[in-house]
Design a protein around this nucleic acid. Structure first.
Length: 569
DNA sequence: GCCGTTTTCGGCCCGACTGTTTTCAGTCG
């Protein structure tokens, strides 16, 4: 059983305990443990095999360590099964409706025996809900209004989808006469792979003007809430956005607060408490007196910390670095000089070799690798040895005529289900750049996946493993593997690892990339472009690298061509 | 249920908004 699965069992347990009105701190303990499990590279099942004491992990005590062991050994958790028998799973869907929480869901279940969304809808339509204590007509109406939408819009939105919407709204609000500062906060500012809600922070002399401007914006479908300082709207594509209007003297504290993450903020507040201070979105206070609040920097400084880049605010080690002024200088898009994963019309790309080279030059790239598919990927018209050699000849011809950019003859070579490579060694030897990847058989068992990746890593012609887990965010999980072992092998055999920059992949993810950095593995951020515009996704890969705490030094394709060349096999 | 340089017991982050209420509980981020 992998960490994610155990984490989700703990989350479910926490949800069920909430419905039952259990001690909120006990519930939090399960959620904290879930987060810890999602954040570590080693699988707990292998840690247990090695005899590691799981209580060494933060947020895992004796009790939860035993529950993890139970899950790993038996595949189930007795406590969870008992709770599920008491609380029907549909009650959790009800709890997730906007405006309904654990208490209301519990009331609906206990008083009316409502166990799923369908029954809830029927009861609301029959007018039965408004008679319950704590409910009334408005709650019933709101349930009916949300119930159909909620069923389908559970999923989060890719950062890349949200970005243009946020930019347009920021532009509109910034142009108003009354606004001074307009900045997105929340998970968007932290550059998470996906965002749930959006937050925009504004300083303004005229709250109504700002709120009206947002309410009337083309991208806004509905105003959900409007108060003195906060307005909540629903945008197109089902995204919801909170607008917060804050005084200038609190702007930094508000930015800090609303950027999160929640976990990061909890540590911030505890630090404040230890210094007999109180931190909230209005500032850092000593009694009534404001100590800091106008800028984020002064809030961090007052708590003895260097300013932490938003991408690192996850309570995953950033505080120790910030205390000692050892935070990394994170890589930026401007650092990127090469792009080492892209396709042409030879397989499933839409642009020719010339067009791709031209597009790369326009984006300031100094070197690229053209990496079309190998033959196993029939859907994409993958290349066999003969076609590949012809393709490489064409690439060399074009490259010779082109100035100002190095073009490598590459291949995206499939690692087949039987743990062999899709092209023979004598062909791979001729390549400048071999990117080995898993495309098929991602559901094979862990041992076989491991064997396949090891075949590629040990092959002396393989330069890099592309999109290592094969995950598609929100659609399919990656192949199961012991990432720490794969990374150790990659370090031993001097194989690089890719952060695939496509918004739906971002693979390696941040924690894996951080683990790769710790082993000294050069990381390559690649666009996997299938068209000239596909090269523009580089920024998302850079954001992912920043979230992993990587500097330009850690990124192989931020080096000059002369330096990068030395890494080639 | 976890945790500890004030602690092995008694804490555990905090404010805005809404709806249902006559002063507050629930929800949300």
């Amino acid at each position: 059983m992998n960490n994610e699965r155990i984490a989700s069992q703990f989350d479910e347990l926490a949800d069920l305990l909430e419905i039952q009105g259990a001690n909120p701190f006990r519930i939090r303990a399960y959620r904290n443990a879930s987060r810890t499990l999602e954040g570590i590279t080693d699988s707990v099942s292998s840690l247990l095999e090695e005899g590691t004491d799981l209580t060494e992990l933060s947020g895992i005590g004796k009790d939860l360590a035993a529950k993890i062991a139970e899950l790993v050994e038996s595949g189930t958790l007795e406590q969870l099964e008992e709770l599920k028998a008491e609380v029907p799973p549909g009650v959790l869907d009800i709890m997730r409706l906007p405006g309904v929480g654990p208490k209301k869901a519990a009331t609906l279940f206990k008083e009316l025996n409502i166990t799923n969304l369908d029954e809830l809808k029927a009861a609301a339509q029959a007018g039965e809900i408004q008679n319950l204590k704590g409910f009334a007509k408005k709650t019933e109406d709101s349930i009916l209004a949300n119930i159909d939408q909620a069923a389908k819009s559970k999923e989060r939105t890719f950062f890349a989808t949200a970005e243009p919407l946020v930019e347009q709204i920021v532009e509109t609000l910034a142009a108003l006469a009354s606004t001074q500062q307009v900045t997105p906060a929340g998970s968007f500012r932290r550059r998470k792979e996906t965002v749930g809600d959006l937050d925009i922070l504004v300083t303004s002399d005229d709250v109504d003007e700002v709120m009206d401007a947002l309410a009337n914006h083309d991208l806004v479908e509905e105003v959900l809430q409007r108060g003195e300082t906060k307005q909540r709207v629903r945008l197109i594509k089902g995204l919801e956005m909170d607008l917060r209007v804050v005084p200038a003297k609190s702007y930094g504290a508000a930015m800090q607060y609303f950027t999160g993450s929640k976990e990061h903020n909890i540590v911030m507040r505890k630090r404040a408490q230890k210094q007999n201070l109180e931190l909230n979105e209005y500032g850092l206070f000593s009694g009534e007196e404001s100590v800091a609040g106008e800028t984020e920097e002064e809030v961090y400084e007052a708590l003895g910390l260097a300013w932490v880049p938003p991408e690192l605010r996850e309570d995953r080690g950033e505080f120790e670095l910030a205390e000692n002024n050892r935070l990394p200088e994170l890589v930026t898009l401007d650092d990127i000089r090469g792009d080492l994963h892209m396709h042409t019309t030879a397989t499933d790309g839409t642009a020719t070799i010339e067009e791709m080279i031209d597009a790369a030059k326009k984006r300031g790239r100094k070197y690229i690798a053209i990496t079309d598919h190998s033959k196993r990927v029939t859907m994409a018209n993958g290349l066999d040895a003969d076609r590949l050699r012809t393709h490489w000849n064409e690439i060399r011809e074009v490259a010779e005529k082109t100035k100002g950019i190095q073009v490598l003859c590459g291949i995206e070579c499939d690692i087949l289900e039987d743990a062999t490579l899709d092209l023979p060694d004598d062909v791979l030897e001729e390549a400048d750049w071999v990117l080995a990847v898993l495309h098929y058989g991602l559901k094979q068992d862990k041992q076989q996946i491991h064997k396949r990746l090891m075949t590629a890593i040990k092959n002396p012609n393989v330069d890099i493993i592309g999109h290592p887990t094969g995950r598609i965010i929100g659609k399919r999980p990656g192949a199961e593997m012991e990432m720490s072992e794969i990374l150790k092998a990659a370090a031993d055999h001097e194989v690089m690892m890719e952060i695939n920059a496509h918004p739906s992949r971002l693979d390696l993810h941040a924690q894996h990339a951080a683990a790769a950095k710790d082993l000294g593995i050069p990381i390559v951020i690649s666009t996997d472009a299938h068209s000239t515009s596909g090269m523009d996704v580089m920024r998302y890969g850079v954001f992912q690298a920043r979230r992993a705490g990587l500097s330009a030094n850690d990124i192989a394709n931020s080096r000059s061509w002369t330096q990068f060349k030395k890494l080639l096999k």
